[in-house]
Simulated assay, not measured.
Amino acid sequence: MSVRRPRGDAPDCRYLGERVTAGGWTNAVRYRDDVAGSATGGQYEGAWVWGGNVDVGKDPSPLVNGC
């Protein structure tokens, strides 16, 4: 699932989880947000998303508070 958000529309919050490597990226950040899944065609409220799939510029984003 790929999640792309406008720069001014940050996820609800973030936390550090297990480090995961996928597609050449390693990341331990998870974000909670309302997301639309391009792979599943669904929309999910309050979903947890791996940081490597969220366009926030830098992980963890300084614009997103911890949960």
Rank of each mutant, 00 (worst) to 15 (best):
V49C: 03
A28C: 12
Y15C: 08
C13R: 09
A36E: 09
Q43K: 10
Y15G: 03
T26V: 11
D33A: 13
C67T: 03
V49S: 03
D59M: 02
R19E: 15
D59T: 01
T26E: 15
S38N: 10
G52R: 10
N65R: 13
P11Q: 05
G46I: 04
P60C: 01
T21L: 06
D55C: 09
G42L: 07
Y31P: 12
R4F: 05
A47Q: 10
D9W: 04
V29H: 00
T21I: 10
K58Q: 11
G17M: 11
V29W: 02
W25Y: 13
A22Q: 14
W25G: 00
V54I: 07
R30I: 14
T26Y: 10
W48D: 15
A36R: 14
G8C: 05
V49K: 01
G57S: 06
R4T: 13
E45D: 08
V49H: 00
G8A: 14
K58L: 05
D9N: 14
G23M: 13
G23V: 10
L16A: 13
D55T: 15
D55V: 02
R30P: 01
G51A: 08
P11T: 09
V56M: 05
D33E: 06
S61W: 00
R7H: 10
G46W: 03
Y15A: 09
Y44L: 08
N65I: 02
Y31L: 11
R5K: 15
N53L: 14
W50G: 06
D12P: 00
P6W: 03
G42F: 03
A22P: 00
A28F: 04
G51P: 04
W48Y: 09
G52E: 03
G23N: 15
E45R: 09
S38Y: 11
G51K: 04
W50I: 04
A28I: 04
L16S: 11
W50Q: 06
R14K: 15
E45G: 01
D33H: 09
G51V: 04
P6K: 13
L63A: 14
V35H: 02
V49L: 04
D34Q: 04
A22G: 02
P60Y: 01
Y44P: 03
G51N: 07
K58S: 08
V56H: 04
L63Q: 08
D33W: 00
A39M: 10
D12F: 08
A10D: 06
V64H: 03
P62I: 04
R19W: 15
T40L: 07
Y31N: 10
R5V: 13
A28M: 09
G24A: 13
G17E: 13
G42R: 13
G42P: 00
A47L: 05
W48N: 10
G17W: 14
A10H: 08
E45M: 02
Y15W: 12
V54E: 03
A39F: 10
T26R: 13
E45N: 03
V64W: 00
G37D: 12
A36F: 06
D12M: 06
A39I: 07
V29Q: 00
W48V: 11
N27L: 05
R4H: 07
V49P: 01
W50N: 04
D34C: 03
G66P: 01
